[in-house]
Design a protein around this nucleic acid. Structure first.
Lengths: 232, 232
DNA sequence: CAGTGGTCTAGACCACACG
DNA sequence: GTGTGGTCTAGACCACTGC
């Protein structure tokens, strides 16, 4: 083992947790005890414990001790890219419409704006090998520096549309995923003649003050999309 | 500010990244420079940088320096609980069938086992206020300590079914999400008479050697489920 | 009060990258 | 060589907990 000492401490404690020798709620040995056990200084022990804490294995209570954390069993990491998913990639997009609209009440409410503020609406179709696979609508609060040049938005993802007017690190996103039956308009756009379900992904973008700046709704043909996530 | 110094360092650098004063790929000032700037020792600076690194803002290259990281724009945290989602909660479950089967080729392949090994099959219906909202099938590799007691598995989530024979920390999970049209059997189970899409969530459980130990497929009525995720 | 974790110092030695 | 980050020490003082 050329591994540093704190890695050894991390692995030892992980092993104890995974083998149920340490159960959620149990106390981890105090830092001073671990110092003696491994023959290292306190900062080295603390480095190890910090890693365990950041990975969700333990948490510390000042004045009391460190405890084994209950794992977050329902948390998954999901990778969602408008144009790419594990079973399909969008290779082209066509702009159906881009226009400046006044939002109706529901949209104004969702964007936390008023009905007299301009909103950019963009409607597109995504294609794979010549076939339409998704219908996409986006609503963006108008702001300076925003591109309304058709060439620029035709192939752009949601982030790319706002990235000119906003640093990407400041962007927070929420998505919600649902299954729906297509309406007649979408059936026509996506060449759906039989029964086919849609996977609908709604994206909402926020600035770093948590004010919404845009909403996007992408309706994928169910046979052209699958989303994947994993724990860890 | 009663905040410790390293928090100040973290916030200052975050501010510079969010305001695009520091862009992805740029170098963060070397640790010794930050020591002078803040008048603190190197360990304190390093504590701040460690936090920035763990939050994905920067990364460090030994011998070279620390750099601003490109944000992972497509990563979301998703909370998925079989029995609870943002628009509905399952308040009851009914066991349709629990039996020991020999897997067919496809299932044996997915579970990385052979066709002569026993697999437990569990079929259930999930209910909300008396109405069926989801059809659930699970396949579990049989192992010692596994409960085949009906009472125990009727209301259990996937994790709970295996938690007796396995510490929860050692469990890795993958999910895949798709939209489908129900077949006749599921339509009957879920009282679907009109057109209605299903949101299908497939869960796969692995032990800490990355061997699959179970597969679950839950088909939710599209009007009773929505999944939500967020960046950060 | 003693024991705990939280913060911080002022050094040290190392491996690595670059010119 | 110098400069960088990675590891580690042997102390220190603090705030908090529980008895």
């Amino acid at each position: 083992m050329a591994d540093p000492v704190y890695i050894k401490i991390v692995e030892d404690i992980k092993k104890k947790v995974n083998s149920a020798e340490l159960k959620p709620g149990d106390t981890v040995p105090p830092e001073t005890a671990l110092c003696k056990e491994y023959g290292v200084s306190r900062m080295t022990v603390r480095k190890g414990l910090a890693i365990l804490a950041s990975e969700g294995y333990i948490y510390s209570v000042p004045g009391k001790g460190s405890y084994v954390q209950k794992p977050e069993v329902n948390k998954y990491t999901l990778h969602y890219d408008e144009m790419n998913n594990p079973i399909n990639s969008v290779d082209n997009a066509r702009l159906l419409e881009v226009s400046i609209i006044m939002p109706d009440e529901k949209l104004a409410d969702e964007l936390q704006t008023t009905r007299n503020k301009h909103v950019i609406m963009i409607r597109r179709l995504f294609y794979t090998e010549g076939s339409p696979v998704a219908y996409d609508v986006k609503y963006l609060l108008y702001s300076k520096g925003m591109p309304i040049v058709e060439k620029e938005i035709e192939q752009a993802t949601f982030q790319e549309m706002v990235s000119n007017s906003m640093p990407i690190f400041a962007l927070k996103k929420r998505i919600s995923i649902s299954a729906q039956i297509p309406n007649k308009e979408i059936k026509r756009y996506l060449n759906i003649y039989d029964d086919l379900a849609l996977l609908v992904v709604e994206q909402k973008l926020y600035n770093n003050e948590n004010k919404p700046i845009g909403i996007g709704i992408t309706s994928y043909r169910g046979d052209y999309i699958k989303l994947q996530g994993s724990s860890d």
